[in-house]
Design a protein around this nucleic acid. Structure first.
Lengths: 209, 209
DNA sequence: ACTGCAATTCTAACAGTGTTAGATTTTTCA
DNA sequence: TGAAAAATCTAACACTGTTAGAATTGCAGT
């Protein structure tokens, strides 16, 4: 029994290594060729595999994408947390969190692609079981939490906290999409300034109340 | 010469009819099956054509999509204009325009799909020449103009007008995306109320200055 | 060391996508 | 009616994600 378990664990560890090998290959292709270029076959070739072999380690292409997005969201959260830790007062923390979120995606448009692709409207039956989707949602929410916490620390209730999170998230998302599609030029305006102004509005309303 | 011209015009008219026939088929498929279901082959089948035949009338699948989006943007503009015409004071017109924009896409998520698809980041070389893209941009801008005009009527300069347009467009886009992907549930908040609040902020700042 | 079993990978194919070349039909005009 | 032009079809190409089944690899116990 014990021997079987040890053997099983070793096998699992080896299998996990193979998974990571494929994921690293996927990240490499995704970073250089973009999401469109990160086809299953391209990832398999980069990892030195045949396309079908990937299905032993992942249940679909989108499962690989989901893993990459989880990684991306972890990096996002790390950056937001770092920015928040450097701030002192709650309003400063609110501003730091919102701007760190915005800046992260402004600096890493590829991650934005990934997010927009997996967090999309009508998702196919094949793509991503409910559990994986919930995991991604939770990871995204985790990176947004510092905003809610700052609002709470400022005396705003739970409703205000949630409203502020949704408000700033939507505003950031819209601006980022506008930048990313290069349609911001239509308005001849600096998107980050608009983001800052929005943060200022939310803070002012919370302090005024 | 005159005869040739008349003949040519007739041919062009007939050709335009065929185009419209295909476009109507495309709209039908798109409305019932969604964007994913609106493949070139599905559109061709619905129109009673072979896939290749469509390339005589359109240069690509995305060209068909572009035509549908132009139509969608025309309907959007019509609705915005109607709402603006029903308002009297500039602030009311501003609010009417922004909310009409928001409501249009809240009521027609399919049109949102289309817009998000064609107004996307890295567009392939094959898809949509620069001219078509500019046309779509212009049509979108036209539907946003009433906001800018209202700001101008309120004494805001050109910069304020553009900033307000970008601000409200980004906010609406972000909220709509949040609704459309059903991720608004994360925040337990009413998106239209957030949109109204945002319009209120923009108006208040313009009136305060 | 050998054998057997399980884990892993490959080959080959399927159904689908957008797109193109070339032959063929249909329509139009003199 | 005959020739030119417009419109459509057939067949294929290159690509996508995915699956079934055979072949290989590697590890475990005798």
């Amino acid at each position: 029994m014990a021997g079987v378990e040890r053997g099983s664990k070793r096998k699992q560890a080896v299998s996990a290594l193979r998974r990571d090998l494929i994921l690293e290959a996927a990240r490499r292709v995704f970073e250089t060729e973009g999401l469109d270029g990160a086809s299953l076959r391209a990832i398999a070739a980069e990892a030195g595999y045949t396309p079908a072999a990937l299905y032993f380690h992942f249940e679909s292409k989108e499962a690989i994408y989901a893993e990459m997005l989880m990684d991306s969201l972890a990096r996002l959260k790390a950056e937001v947390d770092r920015a928040v830790a450097a701030a002192t007062t709650p309003p400063e923390r609110l501003q730091a969190a919102a701007l760190a979120f915005f800046d992260f995606y402004a600096r890493h448009p590829r991650d934005l692609d990934l997010g927009f692709y997996l967090f999309r409207g009508g998702m196919r039956p094949k793509g991503l079981g409910r559990d994986r989707d919930r995991e991604l949602n939770a990871a995204l929410e985790a990176s947004l939490m510092p905003v809610g916490e700052a609002v709470a620390a400022m005396g705003g209730g739970v409703d205000n906290a949630r409203a502020a999170m949704a408000d700033l998230f939507a505003h950031a998302t819209g601006l980022l999409l506008l930048m990313h599609t290069r349609r911001i030029r239509m308005f001849d305006v600096a998107p980050r300034a608009l983001m800052q102004r929005q943060v200022g509005r939310v803070i002012a309303e919370l302090e005024g109340a």
